[in-house]
Amino acid sequence: MVERLDSIISIKNLRMSYGNKNVLNGINLEIPRGQIIGYIGTNGAGKSTTIKIMLGILEGYEGTVEIFGQDISNGSIEYKKKIGYVPELADIYENLTAFEYISFLGGIYELDQEKLIERATKLMNLFGISAIYSRISSYSKGMKQKLLIICSLIHNPDILFFDEPLSGLDANSVMVFKEVMSNLAKSGKTIFYSSHIMDVVEKVSDRILLLNDGQIVADGSFEELKNNQKEGSLEEIFNDLTGFNEHGNIAKEFISLVEEVE
């Protein structure tokens, strides 16, 4: 049990700017093993930036980021063997077939090719995809997303970064995926879950982090946030904390503009 309390991700005073625009203004975060973290915030709040920094895609930040107790700026890429990532915009080599892409990943992660392909095929079948030898560019949005999810898990990682993983998935697959997530967490995996769909975040997360203007403005379980803010749903808490209460007026004006066309 002692190990469970250790931080698997530790971020201290993280700042990042693009030019003179500050995106992250001092983020502090300790994440223990086996949690599902719901990471939410308005558009442009810095969610994807945080994730890309942890993945080592973005450099030039200030502060320290430690994953598995190792400072990621020390140049070692060892920690990346134990993390999986579903990117927000389905970035993938679309000209390859799913088979080619997966076996490429297998090579990079140094997995046994034969078992890998067998496993991947089975995983794809469970998600209802049989076209493993077709170009990824011929896939529908949902199929691509499923493939990305499978690719992020193919090497049995300890930390998962899911950036809007449900986009394009049908309701049945969403149910499967949610169940998979909670089982992964139970077996000790840490999941960093970033999304705009509040009801899902509300249901799956052990802990919710709300990012606004590059700072964490709320941190706690849904129950705790609810008690603090005296609001009923995560959506309302979100509106409240980001200082937004205009939706009625904006919608009215929107409609009147649409109806200008005769």
């Binding site: 080592g56 895609i57 890429i77 060892e78 990532y85 080599y93 990079i108 992660y109």
Partner: peptide, 11 residues
């Protein structure tokens, strides 16, 4: 391309 490759163990 960085988004695809650098999240994998590739230095």
């Amino acid at each position: 391309e960085k988004n695809i490759l650098l999240s994998k163990p590739i230095d």
